[in-house]
Design a protein around this nucleic acid. Sequence first.
DNA 1: AAGCGTTATATCTTTAAAAATATAACGAAA
DNA 2: TTTCGTTATATTTTTAAAGATATAACGCTT
Lengths: 125, 125
Amino acid sequence: MSHKSIKSILNKKFDYKINGRLWIECKGEGFFGPGRVELLQRIDKTGSINKAAGEMGMSYKKAWEMINALNVQAAKPLVIMQAGGNRGGGSVITEEAKKLIAYHDQLRQRFISFLEKETQNLVTL
Amino acid sequence: MSHKSIKSILNKKFDYKINGRLWIECKGEGFFGPGRVELLQRIDKTGSINKAAGEMGMSYKKAWEMINALNVQAAKPLVIMQAGGNRGGGSVITEEAKKLIAYHDQLRQRFISFLEKETQNLVTL
DNA sequence: AAGCGTTATATCTTTAAAAATATAACGAAA
DNA sequence: TTTCGTTATATTTTTAAAGATATAACGCTT
């Protein structure tokens, strides 16, 4: 046990835990994380950037900028957008997007495991 | 190899990597992370919140709020502050603070290893 | 050609965070 | 008791992010 000495620092009345964020970077800036995952999933469900943004309490503008950045950073487009047409148009996520979401889900699960393990280590140390 | 399919999404001209942040939470809010570690270390070196803040390009006010939050959240004070006295006063970090920094350093190293491993997995997948 | 709901984009407003500024209290040393 | 550089705190200003608003283009359907 390498850090028994930390014990006295933690107030027993409070609950401490290890937490964090994780994302995929591209060229030093954010590429893929929880926010974009949720947006893609809601676009997939609703067929509309507008509706997806509304569900998330996000402005259409911000949502559009997010998926635009995604399409620019990725080798292949992740969202196909159509202005005009049947029912005014809409947006569809690609198979590549679904695969990226699946990869991210597994990555996130490993991260959560890491956090839980470290929290357990902190609390019991 | 479970995600060979991701390869086609990543633009070969760009460099992708897994990145993230990690911190210790107390009662749902931030307790200890890289920013506070650096501040404590600079207080230890200079003996002054004021100088430490200056070195980091941070306002004294913000620095004071950070260490005040630290002292409130921890069971024992991590910084001893004195207003007035020889050379105007100063601040000293406690042994507990040093132990917490040491723990954080090791935690952070494990996190970096996690990130590197996942980045390697992403790039070579 | 008119209607529809969407995408696309610019501009303005609001809000929250950060920074800057100012002032007072502190206490040992000279 | 004056000086010093620090801590402590309030107030104001600046800045950046988010949000709101407005408008036009789009293209299928009817």
